Amino acid sequence: MKRSQYAVIGLGRFGSSLAKELIQLGYEVLGIDKSEEAVDEMSEVLTHVVAADATDEEVLRSLGIRNIDCAIVAIGDDIQSSILAAILLKDLGVKQVVAKALSELHGKVLQKLGVDRVIFPERDMGIRVAHQLVSPNLLDYIELSDEYTIAELSVPKRLSGRTLKELDPRAKFGCSVVAINKRTSVIIAPTAADTLDERDIMVVIGTNQQIESFENEVSR
């Protein structure tokens, strides 16, 4: 199956951290920034990097942006450019458009434009967002340290009715389900006999690699 392709527009602190993490996760990333310096810094890291104005429709067309599965507008401090880039990406038919908001008002404008997801950098780190973008079942992702992660994973329909013993994340992947958030209650320190239902939320702790392996199993 073809892996999703991403474009990150704006390679500042947030955009570059998100783009690097997507690369780490094995995805192709096109980086776009007006700054030659920012482009040079990322040229050895990303799949493709271009110094270009993302508010120019012809430039975006020439880059084949409509073939990108998900474009993230991470423009630093220029609200007008952010809004224009988001409008163009939607008009050009990019499947999923995600945009960084600099304020609540900016976020409301982006939502009105039909942006699929609005990110507030104060609340969302680039690394966390990268993981959420590539896994539909990953609801939240927090690095506890360089090695350990805690993640929230939504239970898909195919795992409904399975017990934790059947899933056995500890033995198969090395990670532990420390809580199950059900619609009416939360089970803390669940036992092997506890049953999962569709849309339950599993709170999982483990190393980054363990979480990623378990996440892949849940999402497949």
Rank of each mutant, 00 (worst) to 15 (best):
residue 1 M to A: 08
residue 1 M to F: 02
residue 6 Y to L: 09
residue 6 Y to I: 08
residue 10 G to P: 12
residue 16 S to L: 06
residue 22 L to T: 12
residue 37 E to M: 11
residue 43 S to F: 09
residue 44 E to Q: 14
residue 46 L to F: 07
residue 51 A to E: 06
residue 51 A to M: 02
residue 58 E to K: 09
residue 60 L to R: 10
residue 72 I to E: 12
residue 86 A to P: 08
residue 91 D to V: 09
residue 95 K to S: 12
residue 97 V to E: 02
residue 97 V to Q: 00
residue 105 L to M: 10
residue 109 V to A: 11
residue 111 Q to E: 15
residue 115 V to H: 04
residue 119 I to E: 03
residue 119 I to K: 00
residue 119 I to G: 10
residue 124 D to V: 06
residue 124 D to K: 10
residue 125 M to S: 13
residue 126 G to N: 03
residue 127 I to T: 10
residue 128 R to Q: 14
residue 135 S to R: 07
residue 137 N to D: 14
residue 143 E to W: 05
residue 144 L to S: 04
residue 148 Y to V: 15
residue 148 Y to I: 15
residue 151 A to C: 07
residue 156 P to V: 07
residue 157 K to F: 00
residue 159 L to Q: 01
residue 163 T to K: 07
residue 164 L to V: 08
residue 166 E to C: 13
residue 167 L to V: 06
residue 167 L to M: 04
residue 169 P to F: 07
residue 174 G to E: 00
residue 176 S to G: 07
residue 178 V to W: 09
residue 179 A to I: 04
residue 179 A to S: 10
residue 182 K to C: 01
residue 183 R to C: 00
residue 186 V to F: 01
residue 186 V to C: 10
residue 191 T to W: 13
residue 192 A to C: 11
residue 197 D to A: 13
residue 201 I to S: 11
residue 206 G to Y: 08
residue 207 T to Q: 15
residue 213 S to P: 05
residue 218 V to C: 12
